[in-house]
Amino acid sequence: MSTKPKVATTSLAGCFGCHMSLLDIDDRILKLIELVDFNKSPINDIKKFTDRCLVGIIEGGCSNEENVHVLQDFRKHCDVIIALGDCATMGGLPAMRNHVPLKECLEEAYLKGPTVYNPGGKVPGDAELPLILDKVYPCQEVVKVDLFLPGCPPPADTIWQALVALLNNKPLELPYELIKYD
């Protein structure tokens, strides 16, 4: 069995843009898979943790109960949790709804919005659907987060440097150009 450190990733209330940025490390991805094994991640489509991981990379904040469970599951299985991108760090675009009461949000989306077609006239509530939280929570309000990489998305180089530093057990010192919030 491989002794390489393991990395897991997930996208909660995000847009997968941060994962795209991870792929933007280009050919360094080949180097990366020499260094690590990916465990639970959309990159390899492994759905469940099969082993303990060194790093869990989280994109997106928590907007529904499933997001919370996944995030808590990551915290349980990973030594280091990285909040990747502005949504994980501060809620991001989905957190715009934090300034509108939940009832109004759902009514706008499912009942009153100008493009809504919903003859049933109900907000969807099937048991398969995860319930939505009262607001979007940044990851650190739900679990302890060890490292924050801001950006929308964070530059590929930021992600690369963070991973390299972690894998080599070195402190992360990002140059000026690599800390960006936009």
Binding site: A83, M90, G91, A95, P150, I179
Partner: peptide, 13 residues
């Protein structure tokens, strides 16, 4: 410039 990656305080929203 101050190298802030994320605020350590909870957001007020």
């Amino acid at each position: 410039r101050l190298g802030i990656q994320a605020p350590r305080y909870p957001y007020f929203f």
